[in-house]
Design a protein around this nucleic acid. Structure first.
Length: 171
DNA sequence: GCCAACGTTGGC
DNA sequence: GCCAACGTTGGC
């Protein structure tokens, strides 16, 4: 078995008004498909780098406060996002329709544990060791971002997970 | 609602 | 391939 250098930790943004971590907890099997990513860089990361078992920080953007609401794991690797072909979907994509197939992909993620309290952007910003996190950078709009193992460890402590047993292996 | 930052589009 | 115009993101 060759040791891989690929990131094993990710951050995924969602607007809680659209789909919150609570919604994920309430979903069947605490699992959902992560539809609607319409940015090539983000798509490529999901398509090429996301592996089953990778861990995810679920980040609430456009929220009060914005911050990490919980952790999840990747339970299904990239497959075509059918919403791109559905004219009634807000994620419909004219070009995919013209090509006859979705040019976008999604993965499935499953909730692992909510944060006891949302770890706000402010807190992330003021925590030593997280200075290089992409989400802290001004103008960083990517909805999918790699997270280093060290950052993951630090954020997990801040999250004070309510289901520590579930995260033991990775935290 | 403002607006800075960044991605995408399309004329050339 | 340049780059201006436009659209979107997302904190504030």
């Amino acid at each position: 078995m060759v040791k891989s250098d690929r990131p094993r930790f990710w951050l995924m943004k969602t607007e809680p008004e659209v789909f919150s971590f609570d919604d994920l907890m309430a979903a069947p099997g605490k699992t959902t498909c992560w539809e609607g990513v319409r940015n090539y860089q983000a798509r490529n990361m999901m398509r090429d780098d996301f592996k089953t078992g990778d861990m995810v920080l679920v980040y609430h953007s456009n929220a009060n406060p914005p911050g990490v609401a919980g952790i999840a794991r990747v339970v299904r690797e990239a497959y075509p996002d059918p919403a791109a072909l559905d004219p009634k979907s807000e994620y419909f994509d004219e070009k995919s329709k013209a090509e006859g197939k979705s040019r976008w992909v999604m993965v499935d993620i499953q909730a692992v544990s909510p944060a006891r309290q949302v770890v706000s952007l402010d807190l992330l910003r003021s925590t030593k060791g997280l200075e290089a996190m992409q989400v802290l950078k001004k103008g960083q709009r990517l909805s999918i971002q790699p997270v280093t193992a060290s950052e993951w460890g630090i954020v997990c402590k801040l999250l004070d997970l309510t289901a520590p047993h579930a995260a033991n292996a990775k935290c």
